[in-house]
């Protein structure tokens, strides 16, 4: 590999980014104020984008920043500002059956942990480094080659979503 492609201080950046991502996730689900949750989610999205960069996926990282952090989160902040009512700040924020929810989620986490511990050899350590130089071009070749049909359906889905969102948010149809 050419110099500069060898990652520098990988464990440090991995632990930093994943710590930020998990911390952001915890803050999303625990903040009372919706805007603070949105900010924490932005931190999580940017940290996950950094993790994609470490996984040699620069195009997906760029798409994550543009679409998720720069588009979807702006949408969320708009809607939070539009539906911001004062009384939500004083009500309780978790519903009555929250122990059941947490129990179910922890059970799922236990399932994940058991799978990962038992099947450690299913996830080999040999990380085949993808050639980073033309990642975008290869993704483009695949997108317009193997996944052409899904690509067209995704654009149709976006059209339907645009129409749906516009019509539902209008005051009078």
């Amino acid at each position: 590999m050419t110099p500069g492609m060898a990652p520098v201080a990988t464990p440090f950046f991995f632990y930093l980014l994943s710590g930020l991502a998990v911390l952001g996730g915890v803050l999303v689900i625990t903040r009372r104020n919706a805007v603070h949750s949105a900010l924490a989610l932005i931190v999580t999205l940017l940290a996950v984008s950094g993790l994609y960069l470490m996984l040699y996926a620069p195009f997906v990282a760029g798409v994550q920043i543009i679409v998720y952090a720069g588009g979807i989160m702006v949408l969320f902040l708009f809607v939070i500002m539009l539906v911001n009512i004062e009384r939500t700040a004083k009500e309780r924020q978790f519903n009555r059956i929250w122990p059941a929810g947490v129990l179910a989620a922890v059970a799922l986490l236990g399932l994940f942990v058991s799978v990962y511990v038992k099947g450690k050899r299913l996830f080999p350590d040999s990380n085949l480094p993808l050639p980073e130089t033309s990642n975008t071009q290869q993704i483009g070749v695949m997108l317009y080659g193997n996944y052409m049909f899904s690509f067209e359906i995704a654009s149709l889905l976006l059209l339907v979503a645009i129409l749906g969102a516009v019509i539902m948010a209008k005051k009078r149809i």
Binding site: F94, V102, A105, Y116, N127
Partner: peptide
């Protein structure tokens, strides 16, 4: 060294946190 398993664990943690958020919060936006 950081292996695939590390990333899978982080993804599992995020998944479970999101699941707790969906199941327990009252605010629709959250």
């Amino acid at each position: 060294p950081i292996t695939t398993l590390h990333y899978l664990v982080v993804a599992a943690a995020l998944f479970v946190l999101g699941l707790i958020g969906v199941l327990t919060r009252r605010n629709v936006v959250i």
